[in-house]
Design a protein around this nucleic acid. Structure first.
Lengths: 151, 151
DNA sequence: TAATTTTGCATCGTGAACGATATAAATAAG
DNA sequence: CTTATTTATATCGTTCACGATGCAAAATTA
């Protein structure tokens, strides 16, 4: 059939796009009580690993553009989760640091990854199959990141 | 370590989210010349498989809400890709059909899936590993779809 | 048949994502 | 030292994605 390859069933990207959206949806019951969104949760993960980072470092670790992260951080600042201070050595930089509220949220969030794992196991019967996707996804992400940067 | 599970490296969802965004980015060189976005391309895939469908069917096949698809279709109508007509039997329905322009775009788009496959092979050296993710992603999508509907 | 509930779609508001562009500071080139 | 370029961040406009809500038509129930 001439158009066989256009069938939705054959598309990998559509699966990734849908799986990502639905998985983010599964975070809602845990993030809503904290008053944060999934991308904001990702920013917190980055800052919990290492506090006081410039916008660029956060964006880079999340594979996002700074023009996505800046408004995200502004909303998080308004919500009292982070502070944004001018850099000392390089005044162009904005050093993002956690507030007391942002630091304390780590304690409330620490169970979330295990909750999600449990949910996936409940839903699908096993976890191993999903863990096995991780290196493949990493390979894809690294490859795509390299090629789009060479544009 | 107490917060080990909060490390970004350990998160499956973050991989899915990032891989989806970057893969959609890889479609840009092919979709931009056609003047369509990735979600619009998905709508066209659905309509190319079967023309004249109500909004609800399109949304369901893409695992999206109708309040996401409606404005998407309105933009596509303005771009001259689809028509939206009141349903005959059920007047609540809006039957979406392809215009001449929408039908003809199929010919220009038919090579896109192969281009993307080639790109993934070039980037990563092989394709098989990614094809193997598809049934796992389907299992995850179906599972998540079921549980979120039972809410 | 009349009242109630459900269904299909649309509208509104908020928060991403990202291309394009702007701005100021740092760096490099002249 | 001055000019040009790069870098770090911010702003703007457009398009999703989706929860909440609205509305009219259809289906169900009384």
């Amino acid at each position: 059939m001439e158009y066989e390859q256009l069938k939705l069933d054959n598309q990998l990207c559509f699966r990734l796009y849908t799986a990502a959206r639905l998985t983010i949806g599964a975070y809602h019951p845990y993030l809503d009580p904290l008053g944060i969104t999934y991308p904001q949760y990702l920013v917190l993960l980055v800052l919990w690993e290492q506090d006081k980072q410039p916008v660029n470092d956060i964006a880079h670790k999340l594979f996002l553009e700074t023009n996505t992260v800046t408004p995200l951080l502004q909303r998080m600042e308004k919500a009292g989760l982070v502070k944004r201070a001018k850099g000392k050595e390089d005044t162009r930089q904005r050093i993002v640091s956690l507030t007391k509220k942002g630091i304390e949220m780590r304690e409330q969030a620490k169970h979330i990854p295990d909750c999600l794992s449990d949910e996936i196991i409940q839903i699908t019967g096993e976890e191993e199959e999903f863990v096995r996707m991780i290196p493949t996804l990493d390979k894809l992400i690294e490859g795509l990141k390299r090629t789009t940067n060479n544009k």
